[in-house]
Amino acid sequence: MDRDTSQERRRRFPRRKVQMPLWQELPLLLVVAFCLAVLIRSFLLQAFFIPSGSMENTLLVGDRVLVNKIVYDVRDPKRGEVVVFRGPEAWAPQPVDDGNTSVLSKVSRTMGDLVGISRPGAKDFIKRVIAVGGDRISCCDDQGRVMVNGKGLDEPYIFDNSPLDVPPVPGECRSRQFAEVVVPPGQIFVMGDHRGVSQDARCQGPVPVENVVGRAFVVVWPQDRWANLSVPDTFDGIPPPDGGGEGGGAGTPPPGQESPVPGKGDIVVTMPIFASVLFLARSRRGLPDRQRRLRP
């Protein structure tokens, strides 16, 4: 009888679990959060710091952008998208040294690189895709515009365009003019929005798709600069390249198909981040809530 009473009491009033103290749980949560950040940075998203003015005024020096690192695992870059890529051997490196060589600065840069918030390397670039494999691109038409497959582009995002009256010089991007280039398959032709200072495919050549790190799809810092880096309608209606080729890009879709929604895939990729944050936020309060419901 006493044994039955004891078992009934334990069933009705279960023993409370001992919760780990905050000073012990907090370091564990920080380690988990850091590991998640490294995994996300390595496979999903990475924040890049803009070190130069080659993409002004779309991107300013000091802006931070989120880069989708898996979107091009399932498709190739499209015309009009802003991409981060590793410069080929022929591309001259860009200066990124901030002049601070202290041990603390080096450690902070290393930690920042692990979670994806540090400055890019000297061979990391960010530009806009103007043409894709198979496209014919040149400058200029009678209105001074870049031409892709015979169509002149009206590019409202350009800031301080290169001069028309400067003759092209091999290896230099000072002139707006450049001879027609047929972009090889598996490569992209990229240019900066600040054409007056950008060193890009005009003088350094196309970029292999395999060098692309990912698509920059949103400005996240500073807060007053938040903006979605969507594809402008400039690239609608570009005719396919002669002889077929890869082409495609962000041009007119085939009949019966709709154009993809800009950024839709990028938003889906961010879902694991929000799920991880929600899990960590609930881990502290979920157990006490359940315990309160079990109290008599």
Rank of each mutant, 00 (worst) to 15 (best):
A47F: 12
F274N: 04
R290I: 02
I126G: 08
K106A: 15
G251K: 09
G244R: 05
M111C: 10
V107F: 13
V146D: 10
E246K: 05
S52I: 01
S105G: 04
M111V: 14
V268E: 09
G116N: 04
K123G: 04
D233R: 03
R10W: 02
R282S: 10
F189I: 03
Q7D: 13
F235L: 00
C173V: 04
V231C: 06
R12C: 10
V129L: 07
P272M: 05
K78Y: 12
A33P: 05
L44Y: 11
L294Y: 01
D113G: 13
Q7M: 08
G53P: 10
P255E: 09
K127V: 06
T252Q: 08
V209W: 01
A275D: 04
L60V: 15
V65M: 14
I137V: 15
F159A: 14
T270I: 08
F274M: 07
D124G: 13
R202P: 00
G263A: 11
L59C: 11
V74P: 03
P168C: 12
S102D: 02
A33K: 03
F189L: 01
W23C: 07
L44S: 13
A131N: 10
I126A: 08
G150N: 10
M191A: 13
C35T: 14
D165Q: 12
W226F: 10
V166F: 13
V146S: 15
P239K: 04
Q199F: 01
V212S: 00
R215L: 03
T270R: 09
L26S: 06
Q24I: 05
R282P: 03
Q46K: 14
V190T: 08
Q291P: 00
V103I: 11
S198C: 10
G263N: 06
K264F: 11
P288Q: 05
D233Q: 02
P254V: 07
L104P: 02
Q143G: 15
V61R: 15
L60K: 13
P51A: 09
P262T: 05
A122R: 11
K127M: 09
A179G: 10
R145M: 13
D4K: 07
P163M: 15
G192P: 06
A281F: 12
V84L: 05
R202T: 01
V220W: 06
K106I: 05
F217H: 01
Y72N: 03
G247V: 04
D200C: 06
D2E: 09
L66S: 11
P95F: 08
I70L: 14
S105V: 03
D135P: 04
R225L: 07
N57S: 13
I158T: 15
V268P: 08
P170C: 05
A275P: 00
P253I: 02
V31G: 14
A281L: 12
A90G: 06
I158R: 10
D200A: 01
D135F: 12
V32D: 00
